[in-house]
Design a protein around this nucleic acid. Structure first.
Lengths: 121, 121
DNA sequence: TTCACTATATGCATAATGCATATAGTGAAT
DNA sequence: ATTCACTATATGCATTATGCATATAGTGAA
């Protein structure tokens, strides 16, 4: 662990305001899915078992249904308990589109910083 | 304003875990500076007067000095009250370097998501 | 009946940020 | 002399996003 929690060390720095939410919307935009299955799929976007927070995943899905960005039904699984399977709504699709432009902006700002840092050295 | 605060609308979505802090370190890596002067410089990285939070700026600078990433001295201004002028430390330079690699990772993940979304449509 | 796996969920705490406000020095205009 | 715009720094309180820990329970194989 870090001697001083304020110093950098090798802590996790994955926070990017609601990034997981956007990834989930993107995946559900492609096809329906349930929480447990989405865990693996999130690895596409750099979420590893170590860095990913399962609580956040489930909490985010419930929140999204609350906001009517997705809807869900319970489905029988081949093996294991029932799954809550999520489906993106039209609201969800619009929300995703908006977030994509937010991400483009973020990307541009990050690039600006990296370039500035590297061209100064 | 938004009818439903949970919906997207045109709210600000600028949060990217300590992004302002990294920008400040980058600017102070180039030359010393004081809070009020850094406000304008931050526009380079997409902080506008509307979206930027001055409280956060000053609080972040104090926090960074506390963590010994920067040091400060009070300097007379040509016109107006004294300024607290910040200087990056060696610790600060290392911290900045680490954050740059965090940002490269973030950028890659954001790109992945944007590309996935756009190639699906 | 025990175990590994599948599956979902929530209480509590912390971290990062936003909003509102306090404080005060400086110099020019009235 | 005082009012005003501008320069300058700071903090209390609230909210948001996330992390950590833990609870719950169904399924199928050993």
């Amino acid at each position: 662990m870090c001697e001083d929690k304020n110093l950098f060390c090798n802590e996790k720095h994955n926070k990017m305001e609601r990034f997981m939410e956007i990834c989930l919307l993107c995946l559900l935009h492609e096809e329906t899915g349930h929480g447990y299955g989405l865990i693996e799929k999130l690895s596409i976007f750099g979420f590893t078992e170590e860095t990913m927070n399962i609580s956040t995943l489930y909490r985010t899905l419930r929140k999204m249904e609350n906001e009517e960005l997705v809807s869900s039904i319970w489905e029988q699984s081949e093996q294991g308990p029932k799954r809550r399977v999520y489906n993106i709504t039209d609201n969800g699709k619009k929300e995703l589109e908006n977030w994509i432009s937010v991400l483009k902006n973020r990307k541009a700002r990050i690039e600006k910083l990296i370039n500035r840092y590297e061209s100064f050295n």
